[in-house]
Design a protein around this nucleic acid. Structure first.
Lengths: 120, 120
DNA sequence: CAGCATCCGCCTGGATACTG
DNA sequence: CAGTATCCAGGCGGATGCTG
């Protein structure tokens, strides 16, 4: 039997947990769709993300080399975010996942609802 | 500019957050690799998952119709878990993600390390 | 064997206020 | 404009003990 022992750090699990974090996928998608964007552009495009969480998410994605952060020494300040090649390379993969989730969303929600009514 | 407003529940985000949970991917993979498995088989194949979290993860995947849970009225009890068609259909997509993460793991970890040394 | 119940620490994520 | 700082609630996940 094949085992999946993961004593210590599993890089795949680690990376997936970051990308599974609440906002990462949406940030990546809006950058992919719109190209280079400023902080407030991103925030407006997502609608309901707090400043704090956007900052945290962007920093995390920057750490992983998924996007670049360019600061312009102007007043008022301007900071632009752009997907790196690494970030771009992830988008087709991500689209597959989002596509699958979108296709099966109705069925999955139906399954959950059925479970609930079975066990009241 | 394309927006990603998600007022209310976004099914894609919801599904991704479940699959991004700590153990789901590993449970799906071991079932895909080994076929039908019993509770303890799964636990041993993953190595370091607690009983509680395995139960929680299996229930969640069952709720979403990703696997079936068959209970045999025997003593000692026997419970077998098998991927459903829906679960199977997700595996190619998942493989893509895992493959990408595996390929880029070294580079990503290197990026993080570089960030750390830049800002001590 | 395959769990459920309980307790509990930690981290994620939200709200708010302040700054260069 | 683009953050940082602080506080705080809730949920995730771990450890332990008990059961049919």
């Amino acid at each position: 039997m094949k085992t999946f022992l993961h004593t210590g750090v599993c890089p795949v699990r680690d990376i997936l947990s970051r990308l599974g974090s609440k906002w990462s996928v949406l940030v990546l998608e809006t950058l992919h769709e719109n190209g280079t964007m400023r902080f407030n552009d991103i925030q407006r495009s997502l609608g309901d993300i707090s400043q704090r969480m956007l900052t945290v998410t962007l920093r995390s994605l920057e750490e992983d080399g998924m996007l670049t952060r360019r600061v312009y020494a102007e007043i008022p300040p301007r900071v632009e975010y752009t997907l790196t090649e690494r970030g771009q390379s992830f988008m087709p993969v991500l689209s597959q996942v989002v596509g699958w989730a979108f296709e099966h969303a109705d069925d999955i929600l139906a399954s959950r609802a059925a479970m609930q009514t079975d066990r009241p």
